[in-house]
Computed example of a mutant assay.
Amino acid sequence: MALILNWPSRACRFLAAFSFALAALGVNISTNSLSAANDFTALFPQFVSIRKGQLLCVVIAWAVLPWKLLASAGTFLNFMAAYAVFLGPIAATMLFDFWVVHVRKYDTLALYTYNGIYKHYHGLNWRAFVTFLAGVAPNMPGFIHGVNRDADVGVGVRPYQFGWLLGFTITTVFYVGLEKIFPPRETFIERAVLPDEIYERHGQSEGVRVEGFKAWNELARCELS
C-alpha cells in the first residue's frame, strides 16, 4: 500500500486499491460463509443446504455488530485475541484426534451416516465437550477483561495473554487422557476408508456398511447445487 501511494496516476491507485478490496472480500466470503454454511448444514441437513447456510450466515452476521468491531484497531485486536481463545481448544481436539487417537484411520462414509460409529452419545462426544471447557475456562477472566476493560479480574488476565497456546496445551492433555482412559472403541477401525474408495466401489467397501452411501450421494448433490 505504501508503494501504491507513490504512484502518480490516480486511476492506477484506484484500480490497485480496488483489487485489494475485492480480494479481501472474496477471501472472507469463501472462508467464512462456506464454513458457517457447512456447520448449519451439518446441524440441520434436512432443512439447510450449503447455499441456504451461506444466506443464513449473512443474516446472522449483523447480530455481532461488525461495524463496532472495526471501529478502532484496539477493538479489532481484542476481538481477534478473544477469537483465538476458542480456536486453540478446537484445533487441539481435531489435530490429536486424527493423528494420535485414531492414527489417521477415519471411516469417511460413517462420518456422514446418522447412526454411524461416530455418533457417540446422542451425537455428542462428551470427551471433546469436557476438554473444550477445560481449555477455555482459564482464559475466561482475561476474556471478560478484554471485552470490558472496567472489569477487574486481577491476575486472571495473565493466562489470556497467551490464550491460544494455553488452551491448546490444556485441551491436548485432557483430550488424549480421556480418550485413553475412556476409549470409544466403536470408532477404532483397522484401516482408513477414503472417499475415492467409496465412490469407486459404489458403496461396496470391505468392512464398511453400505446403507449410508445414499446419504453420502445426497449430501454431495446438495453441495454441488
Rank of each mutant, 00 (worst) to 15 (best):
A21V: 08
A37I: 01
Q46V: 04
V176E: 02
W216N: 03
A37G: 02
L69P: 03
L165E: 12
L165R: 06
N125C: 14
G207H: 07
C57R: 05
C222G: 12
N115F: 08
L25T: 08
A24W: 10
P183N: 04
L15M: 13
P66A: 05
A91Y: 15
H120M: 13
N78H: 13
N32D: 15
L224P: 00
C222S: 11
Q46Y: 11
I4G: 00
G177M: 15
V64D: 07
H102W: 09
N78P: 00
V100W: 13
F47V: 09
V147R: 11
V103N: 14
F129N: 05
E218N: 11
A24K: 10
P66L: 07
A91I: 08
L166K: 06
L56F: 12
M80C: 12
F188L: 09
G53A: 05
R158G: 01
Q204F: 12
A71G: 09
A61S: 11
L65G: 04
F168Q: 02
D196F: 13
G212D: 03
I181P: 01
M94R: 15
V155Q: 12
K180G: 01
E200N: 11
I50G: 10
A151I: 11
G177R: 05
D150A: 12
G53L: 05
F182Y: 10
Y83K: 10
D97K: 07
G167E: 05
T108K: 02
F188N: 07
T108N: 09
R51D: 08
E197S: 07
A42F: 09
I50R: 09
S205D: 14
E206Q: 13
V136N: 02
A192D: 06
A23D: 05
D152F: 12
F143P: 00
L22C: 08
K52A: 13
L219H: 10
A110P: 03
D107R: 05
P195H: 04
F168T: 04
E211C: 08
E197T: 14
Y121A: 15
T171E: 00
G74H: 12
G142C: 03
F20A: 14
I29E: 10
P89Y: 06
A36T: 11
Q46I: 01
L34F: 14
C57A: 15
L34E: 08
E197N: 07
S72R: 04
A82R: 11
K68P: 01
A21G: 12
G167S: 06
K105C: 07
R191F: 06
S35N: 15
T171D: 03
S33H: 13
